[in-house]
Simulated scan of single mutants.
Amino acid sequence: MCEFGNILKYEYLKLFHRKIIWITLGIMMILSVVIVFVSDVGFDSEEPGIVQYIRKNKQEEMEIVGEKVDDRMLEKYRDKECAQGLWYFLNCLFPSDYICEVTEEKLYQQRQELLQNNMEEARLTKGEKAYWKQKEAGIEKPFTYGYTAGERKLTAVFYTLAMMQVIFIAVTVPSIFADEHFRKMDQLNLCSKYGKGRLYGAKITAGMTIGIGGTLCLILSSVIPILILYGFHGLDVRIQLIYAACSHHFTIGQVISSQIILLIFASVLESAFAMFCAEKMKSGMGTMAVMTGGLLLSLTINIPDQFRMIVQLWNSIPSNILAVWNLLDCRLILQFGRYFTQLQVLPIVYVILAVLLAAGGWRGYKRYQITK
């Protein structure tokens, strides 16, 4: 165990001495902070700055926290400037110029129609529709209003964090295996006194932990400014208040926790994939090209809904699933006679795939022979 610790320490030292890791992490963390403010740039307000605008809006919204979203609230707080969170919720269901005519009956009827349309477009089976009908019946209506500005920001930010995570891992992790081939150090490493097994284990551990560490830094870079500016006052509010088109029995806090967990598990899978490719191709640049190319494909390809299985698989890849509309998708997974959501299945799938990639990489690593 002591020998493994020394090898692992050596792998960390090699990583931490690479300037590109710190430069990439620094840029990604700065971008994580910047994207928090992007949607407030160019706001229309009499306040002299963004911070003052946020504080003013927060004070106005906190006055109606805990009230029901019913006819009385809709009549009293129709103005976007008076209740931005309420306007955001209504705008998810109605065009902006129609909001002033919304009533409680129209609001919840429109939401039911949206849910029904989503199920039809997703081509759900009768069993899936019955599952969501049962879930919907357990959601209390009318909804209770809560101040969710910070939570709205954070749930949206995770989609961008997932992309930056791929870039960070593509830049930093492949070098763990590729550099020893590129620098012709494999002749020394592969004749290690303690064998290839411990060396491979140390490399895999270093790669996965550096991926997790970078992911946590990205998350904190967004969470901290949001916490300071907005606070997290609506973690116990139903998710329907910021994403109306779902029947999940989640609070906003539970959804954010799920996004954090998925992002961490995704970092493990992506790190395993990066190291597998780096060892197979003996190239860090090649691995970076594969991962960034895959990221670009995930952003550009839009698969029609009639190809349900392909859509469900495509939305399950790490760079897509963190988008809240994919995370809370109504398509279910039938296993052992029961329906499961993607949130219940994907963390397990990611771990299994990471283990398989690590095992596949080990098979090639232990058989690798230096020919020149």
Rank of each mutant, 00 (worst) to 15 (best):
K76W: 05
I224E: 01
T251V: 05
I210F: 11
L8T: 09
Y230P: 01
Y77K: 10
N117M: 13
G201P: 12
V237R: 13
F89G: 00
G207P: 08
G66H: 07
L235N: 00
F168Q: 00
F158E: 05
I242R: 04
G284K: 14
L216I: 14
I20T: 06
F265M: 02
T287V: 15
Y10I: 06
E113W: 15
C277R: 01
T215S: 06
N189I: 12
I370K: 06
I50H: 02
L124P: 04
G201W: 12
L90V: 04
K106F: 05
G85D: 02
Q306V: 10
Y365R: 04
V349A: 07
Q110M: 11
L220Q: 05
A122D: 06
F232N: 01
Q259S: 02
V69I: 15
V255L: 04
S298I: 02
H181L: 03
V166N: 06
E279Q: 07
F307G: 00
M164L: 10
C246E: 07
T251F: 05
V102G: 06
I226M: 00
M62W: 09
I239M: 11
I7T: 12
P225Q: 05
S258W: 15
M208K: 12
K106A: 11
G284T: 13
Y53F: 10
I261Q: 00
F336S: 02
K126G: 04
E63K: 15
M285V: 14
E113C: 11
E128M: 02
I348M: 12
S271V: 00
N326W: 14
E46S: 06
Y194S: 01
A289H: 03
R72S: 11
Y147Q: 09
